[in-house]
């Protein structure tokens, strides 16, 4: 089996999710080639051929141009599978390739067993094993689902690629996140609020426990989207990635994007009314309780110690 891995570069920086791609290649035990719109200055370590388009020519992500570069590479490599990360780059580009090749795409793959991809359903409450019916298959991989035992040290053989394709979509710059005064990545303890807090006033309950534990409070995406907490408190793929000594998830069901941002915490406590919530998958302790009643009692007991 031959696979083509699609790595990503942003503002000249190779993105870390290349490790997921290499982890998948190792698990699938496949002969692999690598595709990247990036730069000679920051080449990935890879034992094989790297098809490299120069990002100073092809710019930051432009779907129409990157699509053509990748299709040309697929034409050369003739892979059985094309592998992306399930990232803002991968989930945007992959369906364009899938359509061009009339190939089955399976998204957010979490495992690969007996040559069959496995994907989550219903916020990871369920899983499904999928059978593609096309000659070429496209996969996007869930962040962190495939890890690399040993990072390669080899410098790849570089094949420069180019295209004259243009597109209608115009990229005009980045807006960086405003981290403000809070750096959750340095906190030893984080107590996070999820949708289960019910109303904005209940942030105070979460903040109270965070203070009692001498930590910071964080929030899940829905809480930030509802403007109950500032964006600089958001934990997850689109917020901050954290690994404190203790992470307390209050009323957080555990969407994959949230789990990706906190599952490396040393000890995880989840407080939730739903026993089956996916947060239970990563929690060391799952407390089945109504946080609005339970958290103030816990806070008082800690303060009284």
């Amino acid at each position: 089996m031959k696979i083509l891995l699609v790595a990503e570069c942003r503002e000249g920086r190779l993105q870390a999710n290349i490790n997921d791609l290499l982890g998948f290649a190792a698990k699938a035990d496949a002969e692999s080639a690598l595709f990247l719109v990036g730069t000679q200055e920051e080449l990935p370590k890879f034992a094989g051929t790297l098809y490299l388009a120069d990002s100073s020519t092809y710019g930051e992500y432009n779907p129409e141009i990157h699509k053509q570069l990748l299709l040309d590479t697929i034409d050369t490599v003739k892979p059985d599978m094309v592998i992306f990360s399930h990232s803002s780059y991968g989930w945007d580009l992959a369906p364009r390739i899938a359509f061009a090749l009339k190939a089955a795409q399976i998204s957010e793959v979490v495992d690969f067993v007996d040559g069959k991809p496995i994907a989550p359903v219903c916020n990871a409450k369920l899983r499904r094993t999928v059978a593609p019916k096309t000659a070429v298959t496209i996969l996007t991989l869930q962040a962190g689902a495939f890890s690399l035992a040993e990072e390669p040290t080899t410098t790849p053989t570089v094949e420069a690629i180019s295209t004259t394709a243009t597109g209608k979509i115009e990229f005009s710059g980045y807006q960086q996140a405003d981290i403000g005064g809070v750096d959750l990545s340095k906190a030893q303890v984080i107590v996070s609020a999820g949708r289960g807090i019910g109303k904005p006033e209940n942030i105070a309950i979460i903040e109270g426990l965070a203070k009692a534990l001498k930590g910071e409070y964080g929030a899940s995406r829905p809480v930030v989207d509802s403007e109950w907490a500032e964006h600089n408190r958001q934990v997850g793929t689109t917020g901050q990635t954290v690994s404190p000594k203790l992470y307390v998830a209050c009323g957080i069901s555990g969407a994959i994007q949230h789990l990706a941002g906190m599952k490396k915490s040393e000890f995880i406590v989840a407080i939730n009314t739903d026993k089956d919530a996916p947060i239970g998958e990563v929690a060391d302790v799952l407390l089945i309780a109504d946080l609005k009643q339970f958290v103030p009692i816990l806070t008082d007991k800690i303060l009284a110690m």
């Binding site: 399976i106 593609p132 239970g280 799952l286």
Partner: peptide, 18 residues
């Protein structure tokens, strides 16, 4: 272009206390 062969609940991670 694809079909779901089977749907199931993921195995629970060991070690977590409820």
């Amino acid at each position: 272009l694809q079909e779901t062969l089977s749907l199931y609940f993921p195995e629970k991670k060991g070690g977590g206390v409820v």
